[in-house]
């Protein structure tokens, strides 16, 4: 099993005359793990949110598995796409189990296997009856991932999902997301401003600036400087940090 391919054709979105996404065309292969990197305001979140229609494009077409999503009912479309974002947004009045089971519930399907989903994201089963506020930030985001997976999506959209977590947790959840991607055969699109994270997790890294994609390469090509100036600048940051750390240790 493999997640769907995603394609964008000349997609544009303006906010108050300013183009946040400016005529982007893009093919994302089925089953790939793509990272979308860029400074804040570069348009990467807007691009991601047009794929599940949380933002509607002004022009251009978005297709998932070859089908134009503007023809689909937005609510139905989103139930089939996993969406995880920085502020998590767990429903505070519901237990962990109710949060995880929300997509099957609103779709009128049988109850989700909450225990299996919690296990999948590495949380103990007895967390099911807790309230979200009783969990740490990392645990909350794991619940957020479990909630997104309960709809059995082929496509995962992640918008700075680890942005608010401490570095240790961030590293751990990043690794388990990559593992889930492999295990479930997902197509994953990850928005992040952290180039190191993108290089370590993704198969393909896209760099955005001023609403356009300015670099598109594999992590290896990025590191070797083949992806252009904008990419090289972003790659230089973690590289310099690594060098300094090494110098400190020596």
């Amino acid at each position: 099993m493999s997640g769907p391919a995603v394609s964008l054709d000349a997609v544009t979105r303006r906010f108050g005359g300013q183009a946040a996404v400016d005529g982007v065309s893009l093919e994302i292969a089925a089953g790939s793990f793509v990272a979308l990197v860029g400074a804040s305001g570069s348009g990467k979140s807007t691009l991601l949110r047009m794929i599940n229609r949380l933002v509607e494009p002004d022009s251009g077409t978005v297709r998932i598995a070859g089908r134009d999503i503007s023809a689909a009912d937005p609510a139905m479309l989103r139930r089939g796409i996993g969406y995880v974002f920085q502020n998590i947004g767990l429903f505070p009045h519901m237990s962990v189990a109710e949060n995880v089971a929300i997509i099957p519930r609103i779709g009128g399907k049988d109850d989700a296997d909450v225990a299996a989903l919690l296990d999948l994201v590495g949380l103990p089963v007895d967390y099911a009856m807790r309230r979200p506020h009783a969990l740490s930030g990392g645990e909350q985001q794991r619940v957020g991932v479990a909630r997104a997976l309960a709809g059995q999506p082929g496509l995962m959209l992640m918008d700075e999902p680890f942005g608010a977590l401490d570095p240790l947790t961030r590293d751990r959840i990043g690794a388990s997301m990559r593992a889930l991607h492999e295990r479930l055969g997902l197509t994953t699109i990850l928005v992040t401003h952290d180039m190191a994270e993108a290089l370590l997790l993704a198969d393909r890294v896209l760099v955005m600036a001023r609403g356009q994609i300015v670099a598109d390469a594999s992590p290896r090509a990025m590191l070797s400087g083949e992806a252009g100036a904008e990419a090289a600048e972003l790659v230089a940051v973690p590289r310099r940090q690594t060098d300094r750390l090494r110098a400190l240790g020596a």
Binding site: A75, N87, L90, I106
Partner: peptide
């Protein structure tokens, strides 16, 4: 209501009516 909660409600695919009653 925390905007993140509303974004999550939209993100999981609630209709406007479901968002109103459930969240």
């Amino acid at each position: 209501i925390d905007p993140a909660v509303l974004e999550a409600a939209d993100g999981v695919g609630m209709t406007l009516r479901q968002r109103l009653w459930l969240v």
